[in-house]
Design a protein around this nucleic acid. Structure first.
Lengths: 338, 338
DNA sequence: ATGAAAGCGCTAACAC
DNA sequence: GTGTTAGCGCTTTCAT
């Protein structure tokens, strides 16, 4: 079986306390003893049990990341950012996919509590109706990408309204004003905000918002957004441009445009909120509002670590800017940007 | 603080043993006591500490997944497969990105041991030279995508040789025989096997293998494969077709072809080992050998769970078939497949 | 500088 | 069917 502190202590002829001190890098140990213990550790191939340590110290070196789906490009890169910074700080990452199902989210939150993780980064499927027991502040939580209204938390998100306005403004500047949009479910703050930005941009430019041009699609299902796009394209007075609410929706929209053999940007233009992988190799390459996904993840962990260090710091909300990447799908004359 | 079994026991006027029995779903408890305990649990919002449980039972409900990079499309979907099946069986997933760095891999393996995870799924950066201490069978390990030679493990991989042969044979059947390849590092079995399949296909068709047409690229760096492709395309006697060794390499190759304004499939054909996201929307859409990524992950966990259940079962190696998806990049007349 | 001993929260003999 | 108790491997007073 695995050797324990006891085994090491016995072999080195010291007490377990001394072994523990050395493991934890305390300096109040004599050099010759330290030497003996180090040798014993080496000889036995001893590794301290984090499980036991965690039970004793009541703190773990694990953080939980709860997202809807790692296969969503947005979360893939973000997750990498989280894991990088976490591991650099000695934390392991537990990954949880909820598929936007509040029940699954709840179960994961419960498990995270049972595992007594040091902190949780949560892209919640719902704005409200969280179990207060799971949000009592005992375990620090950082809200990611979506706000949570029940309780005040640290949060890191993208400027959804600003990004959406930029996207739509870009289309307006190209002469489009009949702009359809396919956007995610209404129980997610980011979807709401993006729709808000879309409407603001139109209104501020003096156009009225046509509800017929706004379609909801399941954020996770490419098929769903494909269908929604087909509906928009089949409208008697077809929109001349599309604003798509996330990367998966964009894929569905591109697929739909492809299917009905419309040409981009001649027949229809498009701006996507969020970049897609290989975006500049697609035909046509979509103009996008690119979110700083990796940075979002990185920032979320940093916020979490800061709160672990100082639990009573007052919560902050960090908004990050998204960047307009102009490509062919709008027919802009602007140069293709790297 | 969090309530413990003791608190529950006191409130329900029973012993901690009884509480424990109920938590663990044992039936040897009287109905009225059970009722009282359940109420106490509810009232206190009690959740058992897995940390304490794990220390006591010497088994955790966590498994570790060690891969090179979650951002590599191949691993993204695979990871989802792993997490789905793991969580369905009550396990949490710790995600580790090594970037193909053996040192980081080693550190992660050490951490997994310290956390005493129930099992590890490992896509190793190296074929050999693993620390025997970390591979002593105390924690079950399933080799994923790449073989490990030091020790006999359960393994789940793709038929790389067969897939590569299929790819190259397809190109040969279209009349290509000057086929360049960009393939991953030579210390990874899957790269070696794919190169082997490439060479076999050529040899069996009566062609000789031209070393000048074989390029190595860093599996993780799109930039690297882009450069390698540019080199191939700059050759005096340029290949008429390319066989790319993984999804990221394919992106690099497509980017290179794009850059030098070669037209596909007219100027150059391509078959990729592994599909890319939105593959059918790319211009041109690449013909690919599609790996059953999700199934690979699912199967790996199943193998792991089976071994956790029966540690002395003799190791098995599962090879899964990859599937040829014909798209435009070869100029095949075959219909575009969904 | 070092050791003895208590105890983190839980489960599993073992007694009754 | 239920309670008592020991102890998983570690850290941490408290003595010395």
């Amino acid at each position: 079986m695995m050797p324990t502190v006891k085994d090491v202590a016995k072999r080195a002829n010291v007490s377990t306390a001394t072994v523990s001190r050395i493991i934890n890098g305390q300096n109040n140990v004599g050099p010759e003893m330290r030497q003996r213990v180090l040798e014993a550790i080496e000889a036995l191939g001893y590794r301290p049990s984090r499980v036991a340590r965690h039970l004793r110290t009541k703190g773990t070196s694990v953080i939980g990341l709860i997202i809807s789906d790692i296969q969503n490009f947005f979360y893939t890169s973000l997750t990498r950012g989280v894991e990088d910074i976490a591991s650099r700080n000695g934390y392991s990452l537990i990954l949880c996919n909820t598929d936007e199902d509040p029940k699954r989210e709840r179960v994961y939150l419960e498990v995270m509590h049972e595992e007594n993780v040091a902190g949780i980064i949560l892209a919640s499927a719902t704005e409200r109706e969280h179990d207060a027991k799971l949000m009592d502040g005992r375990i620090p939580i950082v809200a990611l990408d979506r706000l949570i209204r029940d309780v005040q938390l640290d949060a890191v998100l993208v400027d959804n309204i600003g990004g959406a306005k930029t996207a739509v403004a870009h289309l307006l500047s190209l002469g489009h004003h009949r702009i359809g949009t396919i956007i995610g479910q209404g129980n997610i703050t980011s979807s709401i905000e993006r729709q808000g930005g879309y409407e603001q941009a139109l209104t501020e430019a003096g156009y009225t918002v046509d509800p017929a041009l706004i379609r909801r699609a399941d954020l996770r299902r490419v098929e769903d957004s494909r269908r929604a796009t087909l509906e928009l394209l089949a409208l008697p007075d077809r929109p001349t441009a599309l604003f798509t609410g996330n990367a998966l929706i964009t894929m569905g929209a591109l697929s739909a445009v492809h299917e009905v053999s419309l040409r981009m940007p001649d027949d229809i233009a498009l701006v996507s909120f969020d970049d897609v992988p290989g975006g500049d190799l697609l035909a046509p390459a979509p103009t996008v509002i690119r979110q700083p996904t990796y940075m979002l993840g990185k920032t979320a962990v940093e916020l979490l670590l800061a709160r672990i260090a100082d639990p009573k710091r007052s919560p902050v909300e960090i908004r990050m800017e998204a960047e307009l990447i102009i490509r062919d799908s709008c027919g802009a004359k602007a140069s293709r940007k790297q």
